[in-house]
């Protein structure tokens, strides 16, 4: 036995770390292949909620003359779908932590970052899949984006929000280490979604509640998506409502800055 440590160059280490991250992400892709129905239901769930809202409640919501409620609802539901991702990231992280899988990874000579990188890549890929399913659902119920470039920009902003929530999910999953605790967060997803411009105009809410809804990061992403898709919006004269597109970039960056640091620190300190 020799105590001479093996040294690797920084570039080689980065390459190995990325390969490890992909290996961890690939695990989720194998899950999908093993249990395709789970993926199908993952896509069907927001689709069903969309249809329920559109056809059951849609008639009761006042929309500007000539507009269809689905034109308002779809960008809101795309945003909601990104929000639902918070819970799924948390479940995945908490399950691995509680079952000892995270410890197994940490006892292997792999790059420690791969656990987080793999989770991020896998969840983003999953969200791309679910968003694609939702866009298809939108097209089926008559929703239409105005331009392709605008649609791509809107999809990019939606996934940027998902990317930000990913780190919040990783952090919360590592802190709770309990898949059961996720139920609490998932229960909050709908109220957070309702307290935004996703379903109804904030101007129809009581004054202070409307302001909270307008400053909800989800509202900025949804309003920006409506703008870029060329769909009708709720309008609004407030600063936050008029600056939806830049704020749809700023909010996710702020969330990422906070939770990325918290998640990485938490992961690095699992040995403390």
């Amino acid at each position: 036995m020799t105590a001479v440590p093996v040294t690797e160059g920084p570039l080689r280490r980065l390459g190995l770390a990325l390969a490890d991250g992909w290996t961890v992400a690939r695990r989720d892709l194998i899950h999908w292949a093993n249990q395709p129905m789970t993926v199908v239901f993952g896509v069907l769930f927001p689709v069903m909620i969309t249809l329920a809202f559109g056809y059951l409640f849609g008639g009761a919501v006042d929309v500007p003359a000539g507009a269809d409620y689905f034109a308002f609802l779809m960008p809101g539901m795309y945003g909601m779908t990104m929000l639902f991702g918070l819970g799924s990231t948390m479940v995945a992280v908490a399950t691995d932590a509680s079952r000892g899988v995270t410890d197994r990874f940490r006892s292997l000579p792999m790059a420690p970052s791969a656990v987080l990188v793999g989770r991020a890549v896998a969840d983003l890929l999953h969200s791309v899949l679910v968003l694609a399913g939702m866009l298809a659902c939108g097209l089926a119920v008559g929703w239409r984006p105005a331009t392709l470039s605008g649609a791509l920009g809107a999809a990019g902003l939606l996934l940027l929000l998902r990317f930000a929530l990913l780190w919040a999910g990783i952090y919360l999953g590592l802190v709770t280490r309990d898949p059961g605790a996720v139920t609490a967060v998932q229960t909050l997803e709908f109220p957070i979604g309702f307290l935004s411009n996703a379903f109804v105009a904030p101007s129809t809410m009581p004054g202070w509640l409307g302001a909270v809804a307008e400053w909800n990061p989800l509202s900025s992403t949804v309003a920006a998506a409506r703008e870029l898709f060329g769909n009708p919006g709720w309008g609004g004269d407030s600063w936050i409502a008029r600056n939806a597109v830049p704020m749809a970039v700023v909010w996710p960056l702020v969330i990422t800055a906070v939770f990325f640091v918290l998640a990485v620190r938490r992961h690095q300190r699992l040995d403390r």
Partner: peptide
């Protein structure tokens, strides 16, 4: 102590 394996694989 736990069987630290992935259930879905």
């Amino acid at each position: 102590q736990h069987a630290a394996v992935d259930e879905q694989l």
